[in-house]
Amino acid sequence: MGRSERRGLARLMLRYPERREAFRRKAADDPYFLELCDAYEATCEAAEYWARSSEPFAPERTCEYRRLATDVEEDILRKVV
């Protein structure tokens, strides 16, 4: 598991502690799940980057990445149902 995948998985486990075991099982046998963990980490990092940015369009980007983080979470949760 790559660093970004691990960090994304850790974020998910913090956010959804009741699903930790399901996340662990899925991470062990589903490469697409790990790709989504990587994408989730990239989304959260981008949201944090733009939240700190002073660029004029930073608020718009921040909202976009926060919405996207929710969408990726839904993709992930759908896989562990």
Binding site: Y32, E35, L36, D38, A39, A46, L68, V72, D75
Partner: peptide, 13 residues
């Protein structure tokens, strides 16, 4: 702005 990489992952999945 990694929007393309993230959305490509979602499409692949």
């Amino acid at each position: 702005d990694p929007i393309v990489r993230i959305e490509a992952t979602r499409i692949r999945t």
